[in-house]
Design a protein around this nucleic acid. Structure first.
Lengths: 227, 227
DNA sequence: TAAACAGTATACAGACCTGTCTACTATACA
DNA sequence: TGTATAGTAGACAGGTCTGTATACTGTTTA
């Protein structure tokens, strides 16, 4: 049985009901903690398959465009199984983003770690990592977190925490690299690098700037030197 | 009766049917021309009201989150009137973006035109225009065209043309300013400025970078000097 | 005066969507 | 041997969405 739905029936847990975007959410204090721990990890082989399929479809076609029926069918699983594991579509979305975030962090850390050279080279390696990442993704759909943020307007959606985490981590990592580069204002450089990363992603997806990641990398180099 | 609906009934025009994303579109050769001319302009007071309401709701809540019933109700109009004027929701979306694009161009040209100073100052004025624009918008939802591009995955959606136009215009305008600034590689600078503009918008909306537009402006200044 | 036009009112078709329910099967494990 | 676990199968409730159909009321205008 669904935990979230139970809260509607039995009101013993401290919770408040929010109605936004034509959906009803019960927001509990523990939700954040639950979402951030291993609760999102698939427990069985079927659950892992569901998550993998959902991840591909959500990213490629968009969250709202993909129904749970399609995910279940594509996973070779019944809808009941999906709901037994994830409880609600919103939670599956949060899980999708959570796993994707982990992969992204691993990818960036690995790419930067493998780069020889000083702190400037390490910062520039982030852009190489971004470029390779974007090229490896299906359908040039850009940043899954930005996309999810656009699609999920509701601030109480469980995905919001994951989205915020991802962006905060990226900002923190860039600041760390900026500090290692020993620039005068690491906070300022971190913000500027973040602007370049996000901008390069968007313009690459929308095909407005040619070689936008390479251009952003060159811009980053100038900014580091100036800092 | 509606022109668009007639075209579906009478198949005298050369057209082909596309089925993507669970919607059916009839794409005609003239469509692009039609969409780019005054066909999108509201013809009556009711049509203008519908477009104004749709623009506000689409931008604030997202295109998929807003139904035609809500738009009609909010406009104080029946759904039939909406369909008589716009033929389909997709066309209304295209009209919304078209009008928004015109407003944005006017705003940028006016802002940059009002700025005293040399070519560098004119480029920096674009960022001031962006900052003021973003602050004036309801609900900090960022770039309507990026959002629409995320929500409308289908490449045959009539909004796509408008989105591409908007981005192409912006890129062209930035290149023009870069040429006036007499830098060595105006194309490169234009791409970098575009990356900064898009990145500043995204990070402002997602609140990942503080004062991102100001930071992007500072970065632009460094890049212009370096170029 | 009659036609053309703009809009109202309301019902409805046909999809699609999330989430639930009941009843059943196979497997692991204590 | 018996019980918990994981999953199947398929129906269905209740809602939302886009788009259409029909019959009507005013208003302008030629």
């Amino acid at each position: 049985m669904n935990k979230c739905t139970d809260d509607f029936a039995t009101t013993q847990n401290p919770s408040f009901i929010v109605r936004i975007d034509r959906s009803v959410y019960s927001v509990r204090m523990e939700d954040k903690a639950v979402l951030e721990t291993e609760d999102l990890r698939p427990k069985t082989e079927a659950a892992a398959r569901i998550l993998a399929v959902a991840s591909e479809l959500f990213y490629r076609d968009g969250i709202r465009a993909v129904g749970v029926d399609a995910i279940a069918a594509e996973s070779g699983v019944t809808k009941m199984t999906l709901y037994k594991h994830f409880g609600a579509k919103d939670r599956l979305v949060a899980a999708y983003l959570h796993v994707r975030d982990e992969k992204w962090r691993d990818w960036v850390l690995k790419s930067v770690g493998a780069r020889a050279g000083g702190p400037t080279e390490r910062i520039l390696a982030v852009f190489d990592a971004l470029g390779a990442w974007l090229e490896s993704q299906d359908g040039m759909r850009g940043c899954a977190f930005v996309n999810a943020s656009v699609e999920v307007a509701n601030p109480d959606h469980p995905a919001q925490t994951v989205i915020e985490d991802q962006k905060r981590w990226m900002r923190g990592y860039l600041k760390q690299l900026a500090e290692e580069a020993d620039v005068e204002e690491p906070d300022k450089l971190a913000d500027q690098l973040l602007v370049l990363v996000e901008g390069a992603t968007i313009t690459a997806v929308m095909r407005t700037a040619k070689e936008s990641v390479e251009r952003a990398k060159e811009a980053a180099e100038v900014l580091i030197e100036a800092g």
